[in-house]
Nucleic acid binder design. Structure first.
Lengths: 195, 195
DNA sequence: GTCTATACCAAGATAGAC
DNA sequence: GTCTATCTTGGTATAGAC
């Protein structure tokens, strides 16, 4: 029977992806060369172009799939009934999802300006979709009188900014467990949006 | 009497600085070339080296003076007596100072990894000094029973992350005045750290 | 599918004329 | 103090042998 020609074709692709992820996160998209990525993978620079059309596509691919995974993971969760429980669930989900993917998150926030206009628009739309889920929770809560914020859009951005901050300091070996971090942030978020 | 030779020597320096500030903020340090900076100033690339030893020094200079101005501006303010008023003052100061310097702020947060180890250490020390001022306010407030946070260090980082978020969305022509923004954020911060 | 080789261009930085 | 010219290095991307 026909052998698949080039048996690691399905392994080199992912390895390129992982190398780009790591290097972009560490040094920044603009500072990383195709030669560096190739070296990390263990191939010559020219070989990369059998898997990716160009450098920009690598960045866009990483950001796009990160955002799509975020939305998919969120969609899978059963939504609690009341707004307070939904907010609590969102906070826990956000912290855990983001702490599990520090490199993707870092790139998603730092490299937006290195996307072409077209790619930026697409990534931005996904980000908005995610933010809107939090805003909907806040709007419901305000309507029900359990939350009290003067502007749900700003409260949304404020809460997300605060939660994203966890990624800048959290270390698995640090003094706080994930559960403790989640509890501390939930405490602050809950109070910040309280009626 | 002796004419100063090259009468715009004292104007070219600042112009180089401003050009670097703008370009680094817009495209990122790694993506900007010395030739681009020179073009913006209106000189040839080689001429830049009469003012700056190298590209790294330009980045470090911008970040260092930003952080020193931040600490100096903070030191000038008379500190209110009680912790609640000090926190309110901090929130207002932070938002206004940062919104007045969007480019410096953006660079200070995005380009840390492009500093050499030595320069990073220095900038990081200045940043810590600023954070410590907020943490001291929170610690005092907790000791006095007016604030209730389980961990002042984390609360410090959370509040700063939340406040920094303003720079990502605020536009002078937008629907909210600076006073309104300040009020909304003060409301959330006050509640988040409340006892 | 990966290699070597290379086209082509731009980077940071320096030298020396004016 | 600025210019032009240049050194050296390294960038993205492609061509064609194997």
């Amino acid at each position: 029977m026909a052998r698949t020609q080039g048996s690691h074709s399905d392994i080199t692709g992912p390895r390129i992806r992982k190398a780009a992820l790591r290097l972009f996160a560490q040094y920044g998209f603009a500072a990383v060369s195709m030669r560096q990525i190739a070296k990390e993978v263990g191939v010559q620079a020219g070989a990369l172009y059998n898997y990716v059309p160009d450098k920009q596509s690598m960045l866009f691919g990483l950001m796009q799939s990160h955002m799509e995974e975020l939305l998919a993971a969120r969609a899978e969760r059963p939504a609690p009934r009341d707004a307070m429980e939904r907010l609590r669930d969102f906070v826990g989900f956000h912290i855990r999802f983001h702490l599990e993917r520090p490199e993707e998150v870092f790139i998603a926030y730092m490299e937006l300006r290195n996307l072409t206009d077209e790619n930026f628009t697409q990534v931005e739309a996904l980000r908005r979709a995610y933010e809107n889920q939090l805003e909907e929770i806040l709007r419901d809560g305000v309507a029900q009188g359990v939350f009290g914020v003067p502007d749900t859009k700003i409260a949304t951005l404020a809460v997300i900014a605060m939660l994203n901050g966890v990624n800048t300091w959290y270390r698995r070996e640090g003094r706080l467990s994930l559960d403790e971090v989640e509890t501390i942030y939930w405490d602050m978020v809950r109070k910040a949006v309280a009626a």
